[in-house]
Design a protein around this nucleic acid. Structure first.
Lengths: 347, 347
DNA sequence: CATCAATTTAGGAGCGCTCCCAATTTCAAA
DNA sequence: TTTGAAATTGGGAGCGCTCCTAAATTGATG
């Protein structure tokens, strides 16, 4: 049964059903005020012919495309395979399906891409709105998008927060909890390995670290803070720098860095978690099967994606979101690497 | 400098530049036969106003949208976070950028999604063509798509190969090589853990396994073949089933299953790779840092993505692809889990 | 059975572009 | 200068839909 998608038009269907173009349009768009008799006759013809209205014509006439874009700026696109992004994308895609919206994906690879993509994204007739992953300072496209007046929702706390609706994980609180957990385990010399500079994520996670120390009355020792860039390699190097200062626990701003750091600690002859405890951030799939299983922070990534879509649709349909910022909570997943289980302190 | 994206039209630009709509259209579309003087004047006005032609109007008038879709069917969408898919998506997205095409992503979650998405995908005025990830039998959407006559390229060998252009990794040869490698290491009782049934990937990898055994004159022992579903958990269980039959090496059809299988082998007191060697498939990021580092098959996933786009554009522009099937080669990455390094036999 | 309001249906205008063809301009050769 | 081919430019028609308004139909009411 090959339904040949020939170029049927509303008018064709109208003729076959013995009604007018407008009536078919009303049926297709589920408008009220169509008599039951006519509606069923038209639906019948539509089913028989396999008709689907032309998307471009509909968009042109109605000035709505029922499409939204998901944009990953130049500074993050290359990390797309990092599980965070596909998970977020999946959440967004699912929500789009549910709302009968079509999703366009823009991975901005290079500066040239940026120039080419911007018109596509901002011009009329393609997208009703966009979701942007942000959190890095040097992201021109995102800033241009924000100043153009297309409906927009930013995922991740943007650098310039002026009247932009955004959605973010509670990085400060998540990190505070993680570090407080390490403190609760009796550690006093807690180090941290930071993510890439110039990202709000890193800034916020650092703030959470400091907050936890302050709450516990522990001193902030700059020597126990090492710079990384979220990668495993950088975690290894950061740990090497940290080791001389003898931390008894480490909070890494990403699981990948935690993996690297643990490797470095072991290389130096330390046992994990007996001699030194670790907490990561992300809850990568491999965190569970790592030896020792990594204690880490889990983010509701996919939920964030669908929430981003809901918020964007609100802006599209109602002109504004009900709240300017949504901060979603995280969950500390206690496994073995922090030492809680070894000490019989797991909840 | 807020460029307000008001609804400028060709006509507006034409008026400002003192020319006709047609001339502006020619300039925008880089048609020849526009005098240099007029062209620069028009470009000037366009730059000043920040004009971008309306996508929907252009699509409607030209019957081309410059958009393609990437569709993950119901049977694979849930695996989107598996690094294979984001990597493929990235390759596709990059190629789209280069060719000035816009990418739409369809993750078909449920059967209801399928019904809702199909019209969007197949109807005119939205997509010029689609790339579909296939390889599973029960995938209605994909079959419907193939019978509708939208330009299509399938990634992964489809079940029904009748006049469909597809692109696939050489699973048979990759597996043959992997198993031959284990044979070359002196193993004679080589087991395999298969992926999900009803996928061409599994079928092909099994065939490669059998081929390698046959070439080496080794018997095919059904007891050394265990069923899995690509997941780590299934790898663990499959290995438990395999252990009583004392394999000296295992070829797992995915890295995740290899991880699970190694865990099971160790649980039974075996040393890896001294007592038993393992080869996986996929080269996940964690394969490198696994203990022991996993020998596995690397696929040029991102390249496949861009090749899929090239092929699709060929079909769109020239009516057909230059070849019906493209089979891309893989690479065996020898690390420690197979025992080659231990035996001093690494390449 | 007439009247009028409410419901349903039809058709025109217009969304902003492309594409075609005709009109205009340019310019070389006679 | 005249002529005509080539290059450039302009404007109409039309892509397939939505939305608005007006016409036709329905049906309740006096």
């Amino acid at each position: 049964m090959t339904i040949d998608i020939q170029n049927l038009t509303l008018e064709d269907i109208a003729e076959k059903a013995g009604v007018s173009r407008s009536t078919v349009s009303r049926v297709v768009n589920e408008h009220p005020n169509v008599s039951e008799k006519v509606r069923t006759r038209v639906l019948q013809v539509i089913a028989e012919t396999g008709f689907h209205p032309n998307a471009a014509a509909r968009t042109l006439a109605s000035q709505r495309s029922s499409m939204i874009g998901f944009i990953l700026g130049r500074t993050v696109s290359s990390f797309f395979p990092d599980p965070y992004f596909p998970q977020l994308t999946q959440g967004i895609a699912q929500a789009c399906n549910q709302n009968r919206y079509t999703l366009s994906l823009f991975l901005v690879g290079s500066r040239e891409d940026e120039a080419m993509i911007f018109p596509n994204v901002s011009r009329k007739g393609l997208l009703d709105g966009v979701i942007v992953q942000s959190g890095h300072d040097d992201d021109e496209l995102i800033n241009k998008l924000i100043t153009s007046n297309i409906p927009i929702v930013v995922v991740g706390r943007p650098f310039e927060v002026e009247n932009v609706t955004f959605l973010d994980v509670d990085n400060v609180e998540a990190s505070r909890q993680a570090v407080a957990h390490l403190i609760g385990l009796g550690n006093t010399r807690i180090a941290t390995i930071e993510g890439s500079a110039n990202t709000t994520v890193s800034i916020d996670r650092r703030r959470g670290y400091e907050k936890a120390l302050a709450e516990a009355g522990l001193p902030l020792d700059e020597k126990l803070i090492a710079a990384g860039d979220f990668s495993e390699e950088s975690g290894y190097r950061a740990m090497e720098a940290l080791l001389p200062h003898k931390p008894d626990a480490v909070f890494a701003a990403s699981d990948a860095m935690a993996f690297g750091a643990i490797r470095a600690a072991r290389h130096a002859g330390l046992r994990v978690p007996e001699d030194i405890g670790f907490v990561g951030f992300d809850d990568l799939p491999s965190a569970r099967r790592f030896e020792p299983a990594l204690t880490t922070v889990r983010q509701p990534v996919s939920e964030m994606g669908s929430k981003a879509v809901d918020t964007l649709l609100q802006i599209i349909h109602e002109g504004a979101a009900s709240q300017a910022a949504t901060i979603v909570p995280t969950e500390l997943v206690v496994r073995n690497s922090c030492g809680a289980k070894a000490k019989g302190l797991a909840q």
